[in-house]
């Protein structure tokens, strides 16, 4: 898949933002007033910023509201509802904390749940796609949730939670990658099944339908070199989990914590880049490309 910056940005930051909102919703850290304001601002900047980024890749952003109509069947529509609901609820919850130093726990839990649900619906947009076997797996929501929660814990300053979470995330991500590498071959979709020509013999893509490029190739076919991918994975793991763990283990300083967060974000962006760039859409089979 084409690793579109808008989508990488969107999933990374909305994940982090909603992750942080989860923690804020359950009262971790128990902030109020100006501190709460700072935390909520951070969370909203990330979540709303991410959501806004996602509209950049729309052909008609001005019609975005129409995306709310199909919640019965469309995960994207559900995501829209969850996000708005979570943001609205958490806004009330946050306002109470900031302005009235009051924590409305029920609202907080509900908001946290909706925030989690938002991340889940986002992940389901990808998970539901049988066409992209690497994504079409229970691991995808697990991973999105894990990223959001880990990032949330980190941003929420829950170091004791964050350290094991970061480690677990690294393990989970590694497993998911490994599993993902064979997803296409396990999916049963091959050039033979795509063309129905398998019974005759070995099928190979010959001339493409057009010598030039097209929307499909731009959107769905992106080839990452194997060596390149392995290197990036390592970098992603180090940045997402390795470096932050080290930075969190050294005696606490705001600077180190800041660095840990920065490193984590860079790591998640790298992992997300890989998430898209390494995802192979079955349509690539028709073009002899993956």
């Amino acid at each position: 898949m084409h690793p579109a910056p808008s989508v990488i940005f969107f999933t990374t930051f909305s994940g982090l933002g909603f992750g942080l909102l989860v923690f804020l919703g359950i009262g971790l850290p128990p902030v109020t007033g100006v501190t709460a304001f700072a935390f909520f601002t951070l969370a909203y900047l990330a979540a709303v910023g991410g959501l806004t980024a996602s509209t950049f890749h729309l052909g008609h952003p001005e019609r975005a509201l129409k995306a709310f109509t199909q919640w019965r069947s469309s995960w994207l529509s559900r995501e829209a509802w969850c996000a708005v609901a979570a943001l609205l609820l958490m806004a009330i919850y946050g306002a109470a904390l900031v302005f009235w130093n009051t924590r409305l726990p029920i609202l907080g839990y509900l908001g946290a749940a909706l925030s989690l649900a938002t991340v889940f619906t986002t992940s389901m947009i990808y998970t539901q796609l049988k066409t992209i076997p690497r994504w079409n797996s229970r691991a995808t929501p697990a991973k999105f949730l894990a990223y959001a929660l880990t990032g949330g814990a980190l941003l929420a300053g829950q170091i004791s939670l964050a350290i094991p979470a970061l480690a677990a995330l690294a393990v989970l991500q590694s497993i998911v990658w490994k599993q993902g590498d064979t997803a296409l071959s396990r999916s049963g979709s091959t050039l033979a099944s795509a063309t129905g020509l398998g019974p005759i013999g070995q099928v190979r893509a010959f001339e493409p339908p057009h010598t030039g490029t097209n929307y499909l190739l731009r959107e769905f076919v992106h080839v990452v070199g194997r060596k390149h991918a392995a290197k990036l994975r390592l970098i992603a793991l180090i940045l997402t989990s390795g470096l932050p763990i080290v930075l969190l283990l050294v005696p606490f300083s705001h600077f180190a914590a800041g660095l840990a967060v920065l490193s984590h974000i860079l790591g998640v962006l790298t992992a997300r880049w890989l998430f898209f760039a390494q995802a192979e859409h079955v349509v690539g089979l028709y073009y002899g490309k993956r």
Partner: peptide, 14 residues
């Protein structure tokens, strides 16, 4: 149509 592209993602056949 908002041009989100998701339907194209969902179509196996391009």
């Amino acid at each position: 149509c908002i041009g989100c592209g998701l339907c194209a993602w969902a179509c196996p056949y391009g």
